[in-house]
């Protein structure tokens, strides 16, 4: 039914017992290595260290403004105080306009995820299964593009958008995110497609299927985990992006996403910490939901793609 289960049952002719024994031995060794007290404690310490800033932000977001300005969040434990005023002001305050920017974030993020996936699927199929002249060189070129930092493209791209009259519309952000995402997307999806057994594709071809049919009936169902993992990856990246949105969408209320608004929440003189901390948690809700809902694809899809390539 799925690629993963069929792979495990492949019978390659070697004596079954010894292969499984070897796998078991390696698994046991890995379990011992990862399960040791030392490794666990390092993992726990890392997890705590990484969580402390977010935790501090959470505590800050529920403290009254006066407390935030006069003492650190850790003093909350000795003198707890609670207020929902910060969240109330962020969500319903007349000047924060969070709902507008929330909608903008969705309008920016969804196409910025769908467009690169659609294009990358087509490109990856061509790279994996359609032989054409210069395919290898072209693929290496696409792969190499991942090395180029997107920052160097910001000003030339903006100049071009202004010339085309796209400035101030969502198109600038969609196109930019698509451009920046494509090299990695093509590379990842290509590796998945390459993994599909040749025999399967050839069988389909013998049955009379063309490229379009193979793409939709053979590839797509097998690629769901890969697509999902890349979609989460791209969703989190676009949702949390500030640089691209700030450069191309600016701070205009019509097109700016939540992150741009969030960056301004601290106020001109950085004295509005109560709003910034509460706003950060509101903005965090969506990525957390997306991640938790699709988490099982995330690790599986990314690992399979990158290691096997």
């Amino acid at each position: 039914m799925s690629a993963v289960s069929s792979e495990l049952t492949i019978d390659d002719g070697t004596p079954k017992g010894s292969a499984i024994d070897r796998l078991d031995a390696r698994a046991a060794k890995a379990r011992r290595g990862l399960g040791s007290v030392g490794a666990s404690s390092i993992a726990i310490v890392l997890a705590i260290l990484w969580t402390i800033p977010t935790f501090g932000l959470l505590i800050t977001s529920i403290r009254p403004q006066a407390d935030i300005q006069t003492s650190g969040w850790w003093t909350w434990f000795s003198s707890p105080s609670f207020t929902s005023e910060n969240y109330h002001e962020v969500l319903t305050g007349s000047t924060t306009n969070f709902s507008t920017f929330f909608v903008n974030s969705f309008v920016i993020t969804i196409p910025s995820v769908l467009i690169p996936i659609t294009l990358a699927l087509l490109a990856a199929y061509a790279f994996a299964w359609i032989p054409f002249k210069g395919r290898e060189i072209l693929f290496v070129a696409v792969f190499a593009l991942q090395v180029v930092p997107l920052q160097i493209a910001l000003i030339p791209l903006l100049t071009q958008y202004v010339r085309w009259g796209l400035n101030g519309t969502f198109w600038t952000v969609w196109l930019s995110h698509t451009i920046f995402a494509l090299p990695l997307a093509i590379f990842l999806l290509h590796n998945f497609m390459k993994d599909v057994p040749r025999s399967l594709v050839e069988a389909a071809r013998v049955d009379g299927a063309g490229h379009v049919r193979i793409f939709f009936t053979v590839m797509l169902p097998l690629l769901v985990p890969a697509i999902a993992s890349f979609a989460i990856f791209q969703f989190l990246w676009v949702w949390n992006d500030l640089l691209v949105a700030l450069t191309f969408a600016g701070g205009s209320k019509n097109v700016a996403p939540l992150t741009v608004r969030l960056a301004e929440l601290a106020g001109t003189r950085d004295d509005q910490w109560h709003l910034l901390s509460a706003g950060a948690f509101v903005a965090m809700v969506v990525p957390v939901i997306v991640f938790l809902a699709l988490q099982r694809y995330f690790v599986r899809g990314l690992l399979a793609g990158s290691v096997k390539g």
């Binding site: 969804i110 196409p111 769908l114 519309t169 019509n254």
Partner: peptide, 12 residues
């Protein structure tokens, strides 16, 4: 969905 969103964006 992509088309709908595109249309919205274009008219913005």
């Amino acid at each position: 969905l992509a088309l709908v969103l595109t249309a919205c964006g274009g008219n913005d």
